[in-house]
């Protein structure tokens, strides 16, 4: 590049105009190179937090996870921070996170899949647009607002005791739009030719959807469900409002005794961690467990998506 500039500066037979043209092109090239560097740089900078977070969590929490007790025991007998010298296990929190997320999926997935079926296969006109708009709005509702809403219904209005399933309801509000949108995308990818082929065989519409459209898009729908599952498994805000933390293993979603989850296990120990190494170990162990569970489900979802029968 520099040689070109100097070549341009050499006063040969070219007119001044030509010279200016050349140096202009040099500055264009320079800007182009700068832009390329900026784009690469932005990407590399974005990797810093990702690597830093993963490194932090793994280096501080992984060794805790290696102890079999972590997976076998709950926090029964936990003592005051600073005096209790045992980490104990996170079984209650792992089980709680999975149970509540599964309950969430059971509530959210049928509703979301049917909503997507409505939007793609049945809906048109104003109603479909209104529903589609509301799915977008719901996807933007903050988790704390969803939790507050369930609190307002469950506790304030009906006066019921808090139970884990109330938390699942709040989480379901967050999962519904995720699964609806992904399912909608997948159903749209199913070619109309397959629907036509089925109709032309004298198959009713509902059977066409159940036996042709849904199986064709199944793995794509499953991807959406798994990504939604991963999202709610990592949520904290609704747990703070709706799921009372308990140090004991608790497997009843309808019990009033609370249920632990990995985020609330972290939250129960986080205030002591600066002074107490054991609390800090619990926090990082739980964070490491949580991030690995969430990432594993997330990656599983993406992997499943590879096997989709519908191609873009």
């Amino acid at each position: 590049m520099s040689t070109e500039v100097s070549a341009a500066e050499r006063p040969l037979r070219g007119s001044g105009r030509e010279l200016r043209g050349r140096s202009e092109s040099a500055s264009r090239k320079l800007r182009n190179t700068l832009a390329t560097i900026v784009m690469w740089g932005a990407f590399l900078v974005a990797l810093i937090p990702l690597i830093w977070i993963m490194w932090t969590v793994l280096s501080k929490g992984f060794s805790t996870m290696l102890d079999i007790v972590w997976w076998q025991k709950d926090q029964s007998g936990v003592g005051a921070a600073g005096f209790d010298k045992m980490i104990r296990g996170a079984r209650h929190a792992i089980v709680g996170t999975l149970l509540m997320s599964i309950a969430t999926s059971i509530i959210a997935v049928p509703l979301a899949v049917f909503t997507a079926i409505y939007l793609v296969e049945y809906g048109r006109g104003k109603l479909a647009r209104a529903i589609s708009f509301m799915v977008d709005i719901l996807s933007g509702v903050p988790s704390i607002v969803a939790a507050l809403f369930i609190y307002a219904v469950w506790v304030t209005t009906f006066g019921w005791r808090l139970m884990p399933v109330a938390c699942s309801l709040a989480l379901a509000l967050l999962m519904i739009p995720v699964v609806t949108r992904s399912t909608e995308e997948m159903l749209k990818l199913v070619p109309n030719e397959l629907r036509d082929a089925s109709y032309a065989l004298g198959v009713p519409k509902w059977k066409t959807i159940v036996k042709v459209v849904l199986p064709t898009s199944f793995s794509g729908i499953l991807t959406g469900v798994l990504l939604g599952f991963a999202r709610v498994a990592g949520e904290t805000a609704p747990l703070l409002l709706l799921a009372n933390y308990t140090p004991f293993l608790q497997q009843n979603l309808f019990s009033g005794n609370g249920m632990a989850a990995l985020p609330t296990l972290i939250n129960a120990n986080v205030q002591f961690m600066s002074a107490d190494k054991i609390s800090a170990d619990r926090v990082w162990g739980a964070a490491c467990t949580l991030i690995l569970i969430v990432l594993a489900i997330n990656l599983l979802g993406r992997l499943v998506g590879r096997f989709t029968k519908v191609k873009n």
Binding site: L194, D196, A197, Y199, A200, G202, P204, P215, T216
Partner: peptide
């Protein structure tokens, strides 16, 4: 109409076997 389509079959422009 569903019964009509069982009596009168149809083959389309592009082959469309069910991929699943």
């Amino acid at each position: 109409p569903v019964a009509v389509r069982r009596t009168v079959g149809m083959v389309f422009q592009r082959p469309n076997p069910f991929p699943t």
